[in-house]
């Protein structure tokens, strides 16, 4: 169990690092959106999964899952909104 936890958490961190690298290195905003959603979805998701066995009771576990779920919904929508906004901007410019 412990090793599974460590593996999940490290993998989660890996995605956070990848997301940040993408944010820094990619050239345009669309690719950067792509990068940060990796951290939102996979990074936090794996981290939460890795945390679950350490939760003190079921209530805390549910809260952990809820956090992930909320971030998923929020980040997906925010990404859509900002991409949509960018597209409008570009069409407006042309």
């Amino acid at each position: 169990m412990m090793y599974l936890q460590i593996a999940l958490i490290c993998l989660g961190c890996f995605f956070f690092i990848v997301g940040t690298l993408g944010l820094l290195r990619f050239n345009d905003a669309y690719s950067r959106i792509h990068a940060i959603t990796k951290a939102d979805n996979l990074g936090l998701g794996l981290l939460v999964l890795g945390l679950l066995p350490s939760a003190v009771n079921a209530f805390q576990g549910i809260k952990l899952l809820l956090i992930w779920l909320l971030v998923l919904v929020a980040s997906a929508t925010a990404s859509y909104l900002i991409a949509h906004y960018l597209k409008q901007q570009q069409e407006g410019d042309v």
Binding site: L70, V73, A74, T77, Y80, L81, H84
Partner: peptide
């Protein structure tokens, strides 16, 4: 509609 949906869920 997306923002609408987000607020309904959030």
């Amino acid at each position: 509609p997306i923002l609408h949906g987000l607020s309904a869920r959030l």
